[in-house]
Write a protein that binds this DNA or RNA. Structure first.
Lengths: 177, 177
DNA sequence: TGTGTAGAGTTAAGCATCGAACTTTAGGCA
DNA sequence: TGCCTAAAGTTCGATGCTTAACTCTACACA
């Protein structure tokens, strides 16, 4: 085909190559900082692809899995309102309405009016939804254990700690401006 | 309004609360692993929100910024084909076509046929596109430096190193299955 | 009791993305 | 030369998301 010069398929640049170019193009760049944020971004994209394959194999989407997770995390009896769900998942209420439509049709959740406050709606996990969550969770933990395989227990602790600190920091920044 | 019981606004559970519930609901969960992956996921969502605000302030979207970045990283003369771009950004060629349409209309890139191989198309960064990239980059680095503020130089190095190892690992897993 | 306001959720219209089918060009091989 | 296959990009139809407008209920306050 075209100009396959022998060794350049499509060649996504490696992290270090990417940072080297950035430094050429943008002098006051801290390569250490850039390495952290670029790795975070790439890592997350790849992880989402991996999760997507697993959930697809179970007949649900990543989007639906997010909803199942939020409901389980809310604890028994696994009920939340659409707005609350939307806030946690970073969606608009409109998107949440549609997502709940689909998941209701698939039997993963039920939707009913709150009789004690008729403006509200209660989304509740069904047994099937809970079981799907469990299946997805099992697959996810296998993958996650695999992912962290090269890190010692001590390193995992340090990593978790540092990421938590970044998370606190970003929430702080969010709150201010 | 509703049942504001005084201290539960919408209450997104903290990372530790979330993991505590997960352990109740799913016995064989490694809390250390879960903490790492959950923090990664949350962190990335928040960072994307932050980047989104910055790019919006510049009159572009995060999606467009991703394209600008890829073109700059490819190095001068800042040219790539649509498929190559699509692969790096994790999009389908169809989506890339439309995105390039929009960015061409906005003057951020140009699109022309490759005369030496008329099946191909060359997307090239314009001066305006390069300048937008620079503006976004300046804003991003300020944010990123802020984000990592609580980590020492040594810690940043360790974090970058660990994330790179995870990235290598996930690429490995991707390649296999 | 009535009115105004605010919050929860849905509906409607527009846009970005996806998967699949299609067009065009390049190159291999008879 | 002519055919066949593969690759690049676009077009088409469907899906899920966004913003904005709207409905309905609850509560505050006169």
């Amino acid at each position: 085909m075209g100009e396959t010069d022998g060794t350049s398929p499509v060649h996504e640049p490696s992290l270090d190559e990417q940072i080297a170019v950035y430094q050429r193009e943008f002098q006051d760049l801290d390569p250490q900082v850039e390495k952290v944020v670029s790795a975070l971004s790439r890592l997350n994209r790849r992880m989402n692809v991996a999760y997507g394959r697993q959930t697809a194999a179970l007949g649900i989407s990543n989007a639906e899995w997010e909803v199942l997770k939020a409901l389980v995390i809310s604890g028994a009896p696994y009920r939340m309102g659409p707005s609350e769900l939307a806030k946690q998942l970073g969606l608009t209420p409109a998107a949440m309405t549609h997502r709940i439509d689909r998941m209701t049709a698939e039997g993963l959740v039920t939707r009913e009016r709150d009789e004690s406050n008729r403006v509200r709606v209660i989304v509740e996990l069904t047994d099937e939804g809970r079981s799907k969550w469990l299946d997805a969770m099992r697959a996810a933990t296998v993958f996650e254990e695999d992912l962290l395989q090269d890190l010692s227990t001590a390193e995992r602790g340090v990593l978790g700690d540092m990421l938590t600190r970044l998370l606190d920091r970003v929430e702080d920044l969010q709150a201010r401006g």
